[in-house]
Design a protein around this nucleic acid. Sequence first.
DNA 1: TCAACAATTGACCAATGGGACAATAAAAAG
DNA 2: CTTTTTATTGTCCCATTGGTCAATTGTTGA
Lengths: 215, 215
Amino acid sequence: MDKNVNVDSHAWIDPVKLKRLSDIRRKELRQAAFAVLEREGIAGATLEKVAAQAGASKGIVLHYFRNKQELFEHAMREANAVLCNAVVARLRQARTPMERLDAVIEGNFEEHLFQPPLCHAWLSLCAEVPRDEKLARIQKVIHARMRSNLLSSLHGLASPRDANDIALGVTALIDGLWLRLGLQPGSVSREQAILQVKNYVAGQLARREPVTVGA
Amino acid sequence: MDKNVNVDSHAWIDPVKLKRLSDIRRKELRQAAFAVLEREGIAGATLEKVAAQAGASKGIVLHYFRNKQELFEHAMREANAVLCNAVVARLRQARTPMERLDAVIEGNFEEHLFQPPLCHAWLSLCAEVPRDEKLARIQKVIHARMRSNLLSSLHGLASPRDANDIALGVTALIDGLWLRLGLQPGSVSREQAILQVKNYVAGQLARREPVTVGA
DNA sequence: TCAACAATTGACCAATGGGACAATAAAAAG
DNA sequence: CTTTTTATTGTCCCATTGGTCAATTGTTGA
């Protein structure tokens, strides 16, 4: 457990919350699992590889997680938390509804997150959602929060009916742009992606509000 | 090979092109592979299951396909062909650029195709793209054609620069809506999806063309 | 210092995987 | 009716996998 330990740039360890050694190990293993997922995909992700990635033995993995499924479920939660934090951080600095909207959008394409490997792992996890109840629930929660964030901003900018539609469009568009990144790395830049979504929002807001007050 | 033969609704067999028995077998196996993918995902898709699905023995699968990889690469081609045909069929009946645009959009959400199982299989395949050169190429071709179809329609409706942007947006939005369907079946209806994309296009076209001629 | 406990390992196991192959059945060709 | 391909099966092999477990090695607190 020396040189093989994977330390993502966003893998800072809060010395306060991680009192227990076991918690540290668990976090290490979750991250190792995710790293393996990035490289090998769900089909190639084996307990042994995860152990190796964490610089430990296979036994230890099953000591901290009941089984493979549970391990990867926690890996998904971990990854989601990171993504979510990026959005929340930006959200805290936003004042107007429009700023909050941009916060969500830009947070979803954070420089160090909007990267092919992360996307590949994410894709693999998503591909298993239909066969893993827990993964499905996590996914559902993630989407619900995203949606909620969007709606709270949009309610100040459009009718509830329109806000709903636009929120769906934004989430779909974001997911679609991530997918593009995963399928053809380099085909979408962070800036392009952000612009796309912002343009979409602008287009929809203009289209749906039939001249509210006029300039 | 009697009752277990899977015959998708879209699995019509052209008696002209499929002279050779081997071609029939290959097509059966490709479709069986895809069916297994729908149920089990890439991680659970095994040669034995594919064989069972086709009502044959494992040996026969490897008789027609060099190895597992090749089998699933052909499965992806097959699925793509189906999707593509749906679009092409509609495209043939379209006259104006706008009609062509709608053809692409509606073709991508064809009733009997826009279904969770198909999406799940598709997702599993996409998740493997980063580790399979061939899959990546197929994926690239698919996207290129889609893009080309969109651009040929859009060139009559927007500047080349804008057309590019809009084409990217449309593909991403379509993919994103499919993803939603896969992650939360029932959360997006075919009609909703189509409306979303059409609204997007309308919003963008209105936004980008600063009053070309005026009504 | 020593007992209690947590962490960690490595050996082990049964099941399953992909793939090779020889043997057999079925067709086609002559 | 042979001969020659082609289709198909079942068996065998070996590597791998998820998971269990007993044994070992720290750690810690009394």
